[in-house]
Nucleic acid binder design. Structure first.
Lengths: 97, 97
DNA sequence: TCATCAATTAGATACTTGTCGAAATATCGA
DNA sequence: TCGATATTTCGACAAGTATCTAATTGATGA
């Protein structure tokens, strides 16, 4: 079995994830985080997108709030990792439609 | 192979689908359409959701515009079917993150 | 300690959108 | 043709949100 632990999403989280994915910029951000094997700092993302730090911070909060990413502070920086298990849970849910 | 024909989604359609799925009511509608083996009329959906015909019409247009459902007029009624191929294409795309 | 850089928060604004009521359109049966 | 039923369109409004600038907090190194 590929997924040892299936995550069950509440209706609320389901909705948060769907809305988080609805913004093209957040989709790009997720791709960026997902494509980097290691962690990904805010600055890395800002280098790719023409947005202000404030706007980026807002988007990151949305993604984190949805459970799609995990933030970990490291000194001045904040590193993000993609929660593939949560994303997979969302896909599983959609596939059940 | 399960999917004989892979559908490639444009960035635009990707965004339309994501936004269409972002509304909980539209998610419910999709479930309703998907769960009915045969076609599904507007009235069937209205019986499940406390919304006015105008609002429902609006949602159906969004879903159709995103390519997630197909509408076919049959006399007074309009019947909808879920485009599972499009939904699958969306899932494939998200899984690639 | 202070200057600097990273990130967040606060407040404001413009745009999007979910919703409704009312009017219009479409189709069917009598 | 007329009336009834199904769906759509129009116009409006309220709520949500993506974005910015400016100010703030947090952490590092000189």
């Amino acid at each position: 079995m590929a997924a040892a632990k299936r995550i069950a999403l509440s209706e609320r989280q389901l909705s948060l994830i769907a809305r988080a994915l609805a913004d093209p910029r957040r989709y790009e951000i997720l791709q960026k985080i997902g494509s980097s094997n290691s962690v990904c700092a805010c600055g890395d993302i800002r280098d790719c997108l023409p947005i202000t730090p404030a706007t980026l911070s807002h988007h990151m909060k949305e993604l984190e709030n949805a459970g799609l990413i995990e933030a970990k502070r490291s000194g001045k920086f904040v590193n993000y990792t993609l929660r593939r298990d949560v994303l997979q849970a969302y896909l599983d849910r959609l596939a059940r439609i």
